[in-house]
Structures are given as structure tokens and as C-alpha cells.
């Protein structure tokens, strides 16, 4: 589906139809927050904004976001496959990174920051708590959950960043194991 056919969804998120993935993300988080909490800005329209309306609006926002990120991820990948720069320029380096770089918490954080995504946005979507994400990025292995859970979290986070979940999880867990080995030696 071309961007033109997605006009309705862009409008719901109050975006122009050339918006990038991070922009879509930002708009989605902002609007979801606006309509799901009792912002002071909603007071003048409290009469019109029934519970039913609220759910309707939130549903539209969810749909628009799901649809757009889905479609544009494809677009992004297609253009990456063709060797052309991706739509969200600056994000096109992940492919190289996936091959040459070992995924540490630091690398994940850098990739996320380059995309302009906040941790709380990741948390909202992946349902992983912000503190855990933060600990993953800072590799605070001593406070992170057990290996099986950790592996799940890391692959979810990787998927969210459009990285290969298996490769990222393997790299990350091997670092975790190294630390564990060292920790044991110390004991």
C-alpha cells in the first residue's frame, strides 16, 4: 500500500504523509497520552467527550499507529533490500551493525537514541518496565531477571528496534554469561 492510501491514518496522528517512523511513534505516544489521561486541555470538551467517544478515539489512534508502523516497516525493509537508503534516513546502518557489531546494552541504547525513541515509548509497546529496559541498556546484570526472562525481554526489545531478535539476544546473553562467570570466580 502506498503512502497516499494511508492518508486517513496520517491525519488521525496529525502528521503529514511523509512522516518518518520515529515521528509516527512520537505522535502516537503523545496523542494516546492526551486522550487517555485527564489532561486539563480536555476540560472544555468534557461534555462532548463521553467514555464511549474516548474509547473510539483511542481505538482510531491505535489502529492508525499499527497500520502505519506496519506498512512503513515494510517500506523501510524493501528499500533496504534494494540497497537504497531507507525512508527514515540515518537508520539504514542497522544491517551493517547486525553483522559486525556485538549487541551490548550500550549499542542498543545508541540505536534507540539514534531513532529518537524514548524508553517509556518502548515500555508502552513492549510492556517491559522502564526500569528493566534501563537496566538492560546499562547491563546491570545483578538486578536483571533470570536468564530465560532476560532473553525474552531482550529479543522483544530488539524486535521493537527492527533488529534481528535472535542475534541480539545471543550476543547479549553471552555477555551476561561472561559476567556471571566472572561473578562466580569472585565468590
Amino acid at each position: 500500500m502506498s503512502r497516499r492510501n494511508l492518508k486517513k491514518h496520517f491525519e488521525i496522528l496529525e502528521l503529514d504523509s511523509d512522516a518518518s517512523l520515529p515521528e509516527i511513534k512520537n505522535a502516537y505516544v503523545r496523542l494516546k497520552k492526551l486522550y487517555s489521561t485527564d489532561s486539563m486541555v480536555m476540560t472544555p470538551i468534557a461534555d462532548e467527550f463521553s467514555k464511549k467517544k474516548r474509547l473510539e478515539v483511542l481505538k482510531q489512534i491505535e489502529e492508525a499507529h499499527a497500520k502505519l508502523s506496519d506498512e512503513l516497516k515494510d517500506e523501510h525493509q524493501r528499500s533496504a533490500n534494494l540497497g537504497k537508503p531507507g525512508i527514515a534516513s540515518g537508520n539504514g546502518t542497522e544491517g551493517e551493525e547486525a553483522e559486525s557489531v556485538s549487541f551490548s546494552g550500550e549499542v542498543l541504547r545508541k540505536i534507540r537514541e539514534k531513532k529518537g525513541i524514548h524508553l517509556y515509548e518502548v515500555a508502552l509497546d513492549t510492556k517491559i518496565r522502564v526500569e528493566i529496559l534501563e537496566n538492560i541498556e546499562h547491563e546491570r546484570f545483578d538486578v536483571l531477571p533470570q536468564e530465560v526472562y532476560l532473553k525474552g525481554h531482550v529479543s522483544n526489545y530488539a524486535r521493537y528496534l527492527l533488529l534481528d531478535p535472535r542475534k541480539v539476544a545471543d550476543d547479549y546473553i553471552s555477555r551476561y554469561k561472561d559476567w556471571k562467570g566472572e561473578a562466580k570466580e569472585k565468590d
Partner: peptide
Amino acid sequence: ILIGSSMKSIFKKY
């Protein structure tokens, strides 16, 4: 600052 962006959204929508 977010209140500015929110007000803009409400003006558009309503």
C-alpha cells in the same frame, strides 16, 4: 510545553 501541542490537537479535532 506539551499543553501547547495538546491544545493544537483539540482545536483541530473539535
